[in-house]
């Protein structure tokens, strides 16, 4: 048992790779993120539940003076966002094999697409707020609350990725590797969330 790997000493890509290969279980940081994601998923479950609760409380959903949600653009945007799960996962596996440059390029690709998505969505958000402000009805209230919550999560994810890019500029440590794994996991969650949120928002069209 004295041969246990000391993950704190792993400050070079090859050392990190060694830890990644000998470890039996996922690191603490991954678990922390997984539990955090569980609570966040519940939060969004509550939001979606509220959406349907209010929907079945109202005869007209959306109310007559609100345009029906647009179909194509949100779906395309969501598809692009969901696709960033791939470069995120690529970054994790590349870093785990010690290929730091590949990992950082994948991360950069992901964050550029994600930031573009966020910018586009915020533009649409502002446009919609002017068209049917949240103070008009319970429909627009839950619509913007749910969407705002989702954008907030995307925004935090973008910040996490930017921070990872900055930190990995000086090399790889187990601490950063764990952060990368946790962040990739977070992004997978945000992407699933995006599907749920868009599905809910578009449900009146179904």
């Amino acid at each position: 048992m004295s041969a246990l790997p000391h993950s704190g000493d792993a400050t070079t890509p090859p050392a990190v790779t060694r830890i990644e290969h000998t470890r039996l279980a996922r690191p603490n940081g991954w678990w922390g993120m997984a539990i955090f994601v569980a609570t966040e998923a519940t939060l969004f479950g509550t939001l979606i539940g509220t959406y349907y609760y209010l929907r079945f409380n109202n005869a007209h959903w959306p109310p007559p003076d609100v345009p029906e949600p647009k179909l194509t653009l949100p779906l395309v945007l969501t598809g692009i966002l969901v696709a960033t799960s791939l470069p995120m996962q690529l970054a994790v596996s590349a870093a785990g094999r010690g290929r730091l440059v590949t990992a950082r390029v994948a991360l950069l690709v992901a964050v550029v697409v994600q930031a573009g998505y966020l910018g586009m969505q915020l533009h649409l958000f502002v446009h919609d707020v002017h068209e049917f402000p949240p103070s008009r009805s319970s429909y627009s209230s839950i619509y913007f609350t749910m969407l705002g919550g989702h954008h907030l999560h995307v925004g935090i994810g973008v910040l996490l990725n930017v921070w990872l890019l900055l930190r990995t500029a000086t090399g790889l440590t187990t601490y950063r590797m764990n952060a990368l794994r946790a962040t990739a996991f977070y992004w997978h969650f945000v992407n699933i969330l995006a599907l749920c949120v868009v599905g809910t928002q578009l449900s009146p069209r179904a």
């Binding site: 609570t39 519940t42 939060l43 509550t46 509220t50 008009r136 009805s137 209230s141 839950i142």
Partner: peptide, 23 residues
């Protein structure tokens, strides 16, 4: 698993009280 529904509820309340949302 329990706190999120309280948090959501409280956020709704604040949005309604201070920004004119309707829940």
């Amino acid at each position: 698993f329990a706190l999120p529904s309280l948090t959501a509820d409280l956020v709704f309340l604040e949005l309604q009280r201070n920004l004119g949302f309707h829940f």
